[in-house]
């Protein structure tokens, strides 16, 4: 068994980890076989569970630690870090009409 991969990030988006950001994280994490957890100073959440993530109540500026354990752990962390860096908002592309 390999070592868990860890990475610390800061929540950048204005309204914190609300519904849509959490859904993006959940979707991304679900794509990996490994276990992914997100820890705040006081709580931890299963990144594959949207309710858990919402329960972190992470506002803008909160420091979080991503911990992945198992197959593809390093890739999972990389993907999630990219998501956090990109601001975790759905594309604001307007429909063509």
């Amino acid at each position: 068994m390999s070592e868990p991969v860890r990475q610390t990030i800061t929540v950048k988006n204005e309204n914190g980890l609300h519904l849509v950001p959490c859904s993006l994280i959940t979707r991304a994490a679900t794509g990996f076989a490994c276990q992914v957890e997100i820890h705040s100073a006081t709580r931890k959440a299963d990144a594959k569970n949207i309710f858990d993530l919402m329960g972190l109540g992470a506002a803008c500026g909160t420091e979080l630690t991503l911990i992945a354990n198992g197959d593809g752990a390093a890739d999972a962390i990389q993907k999630l870090v990219e998501l956090f860096e990109s601001g975790l908002e759905a594309s604001s592309r307007r429909p063509n009409s």
Partner: peptide, 18 residues
């Protein structure tokens, strides 16, 4: 997503996950 844009559709995407 057709009428309002992806950022609104994403809300329902999140509801679906829930």
């Amino acid at each position: 997503s057709q009428r309002l844009g992806e950022e609104y559709a994403a809300i329902f995407g999140a509801h679906l996950l829930m």
